[in-house]
Computed example of a mutant assay.
Amino acid sequence: MQKFALIVIAALAALVFANPLQAGYYRDDCKPYCVIKKVRAQDGYGNPVIKKIRICT
């Protein structure tokens, strides 16, 4: 009976902590941080091309 109670408690604890993360919820210290960088290059005709690249951590 004690093993069953421990299994139920462990399962409930796992669900409580896993569900907010699956729903897209982030804690304050785990929020993704994104930086947008501009990359300058030239196309085949010599025209300047600016690409925006988003880097998220």
Rank of each mutant, 00 (worst) to 15 (best):
L15K: 02
F4V: 06
A11E: 11
A18E: 09
A11F: 13
I36N: 13
I7K: 07
V39A: 01
P48E: 07
N47I: 05
I55S: 11
L15I: 09
A10Q: 00
L15S: 07
K52T: 10
C34M: 03
R27P: 04
C56F: 06
K37R: 07
G46S: 10
V8D: 08
C30D: 14
L21M: 03
C34K: 01
Y26G: 02
R40D: 13
M1D: 12
D29S: 13
C56P: 00
Y26E: 14
R27G: 15
C30P: 00
C30W: 02
G24E: 00
D28K: 02
R27L: 04
P32T: 00
V49I: 15
A10E: 00
K3S: 12
F17I: 15
L6H: 02
G24S: 03
I9K: 01
P32D: 00
L6G: 01
G46M: 09
A41I: 04
F17C: 08
K37P: 01
C34R: 04
Q42E: 15
D28L: 03
I7E: 03
A13P: 01
K51A: 14
D29V: 06
P32R: 00
G44V: 10
I53D: 06
L21I: 06
D28C: 01
K52E: 15
A23L: 09
Y25C: 02
A13Q: 06
I36E: 15
A11M: 11
D29M: 03
C30G: 13
Y26T: 07
T57L: 11
N47W: 11
A23N: 10
K37H: 08
Q42C: 08
P20L: 01
R54F: 10
K31H: 03
N47Y: 12
G44F: 13
A11Y: 12
F17P: 05
C30K: 05
A14N: 06
P32A: 00
G24D: 04
A18Q: 09
M1I: 05
Q22T: 06
I53G: 06
Q22W: 10
D28T: 03
A10S: 06
L6P: 00
K31Y: 01
L6Q: 04
M1Q: 03
D28Q: 03
A23V: 02
L12S: 11
I9M: 02
P20Y: 08
N47G: 06
Q22Y: 08
T57E: 15
A5L: 13
C56G: 01
A10Y: 01
Q22I: 10
R27Q: 08
Q42R: 14
A41G: 15
K38N: 12
N47K: 11
V49S: 09
V8P: 02
V8Q: 11
L15D: 05
